[in-house]
Nucleic acid binder design. Structure first.
Lengths: 200, 200
DNA sequence: CCTAATCTGTCACCCAGTGCCAGTTCCGGC
DNA sequence: GCCGGAACTGGCACTGGGTGACAGATTAGG
């Protein structure tokens, strides 16, 4: 057991979290200063004072340093969606869940803008982000199917997937416009405009 | 000038096309047999009898061997969309353009299924495909903006982007369902179902 | 305090992708 | 037919992300 109070976990876990946080902070600084692709894993490792190999043990890929939270965000989104009233139409529930996720993000507006600007600039990073968001749809599909009606139509999964994919596409279109405007427009409004346009 | 008849171009161009076709054929065979990631560029080069370096001169990336046509398809899609009557609503025009593109594909249904099954199995390949399809939206946006109304609302680009992205998302959802069914369901119908679900 | 699990750095790999150089092949003009 | 420039080829060395294996240090827990 722990001898000192206030330590929620062992030394191992604590140092691991600390190193992890330092990696993210240092890497982000380098990414924002010199660009994502121009920054090598070796530079990051040297800057912190650990070996390249150890860096890869903390983050399996370079993209994970930026997108590491994305899997957790998917879980949070699923939870938020499932917390919505069962009778609520899919689009309304998705909108509310996405808003809840966005409000729960730990980033300041400035940091969020910087990160998304970087994402906007690096194609490989965007591709990976989309890859991770694809997994979000898998998480959301069951709940959306439930909202789609009681009939066990085999087409319902296709419908749910399309719905989730379109919601995410609208989110990205809105984020994109927000980044392009330098963070001046209202993202919530942009999302609603995107959805309205898509639904005709 | 050419001395022999029936040669639309010089020897250089002809051999280049021939080698290119052989690379695609050989690589596809290896990809389908052993998987995309498990097949190395060196194996492909050796199988054909050219150097690894030359292989990279024909296809800048491994993914391009599979997705090389994607840029041209984007152009074809843009042309098909612009060929639609100016007054036609965006969704109808997009649907017709996508159908025209799909009908114009040079693949047999079996080959098309195989390629998409491979795409379905390889995350990195899918990510790259999405990256290329993102460029499709850029191509389609001007025409969609035109269909959106005469008002020069600055939000119109956002709306057009969202519309294009949702159409592509529905296309992917439909393709996905089609692959999962082993090519048994009707893709056109699947696409319509996806769009109907997304539009509520 | 002692052992087993876990972390660390080092080294040696693999593979995709690129720049450079030298030799070869094709093309257009004379 | 020949000749010079342009394009293609293979070989080599190199960068950079990512992985497996090994030995030494550190921690957790009895």
């Amino acid at each position: 057991m722990n001898h000192r109070a206030g330590n929620p976990a062992g030394l191992r876990e604590r140092t691991r979290r600390a190193v992890q946080a330092e990696i993210v902070a240092t890497a982000m600084r380098l990414f924002l200063d010199h660009g994502f692709e121009a920054t090598t894993m070796e530079q990051i490792a040297n800057e912190i004072g650990i070996s390249r190999r150890s860096l890869f043990r903390y983050f399996g890929t370079k993209e994970d340093i930026v997108l590491g939270d994305h899997a957790e965000h998917g879980e949070a989104l699923r939870t938020a969606l499932e917390a919505r009233p069962p009778g609520e139409p899919p689009w309304d529930a998705l909108r509310a869940a996405l808003k809840a996720l966005h409000d729960a993000l730990p980033y300041s507006p400035e940091d969020f803008l910087r990160i998304n600007t970087m994402l906007h600039a690096s194609p490989s990073l965007r591709a990976r982000q989309w890859e991770k968001r694809q997994q979000w749809t898998d998480l959301l599909v069951p709940d959306i199917v439930r909202r789609l009606g009681t009939t066990t139509d085999p087409m319902n999964e296709l419908r749910a997937r399309a719905l989730a994919a379109c919601a995410l596409a609208c989110l990205e279109a809105a984020t994109d416009a927000w980044v392009r405007s330098g963070g001046t427009i209202d993202m919530e409004r942009a999302f609603d405009e995107a959805v309205a346009a898509a639904r005709g």
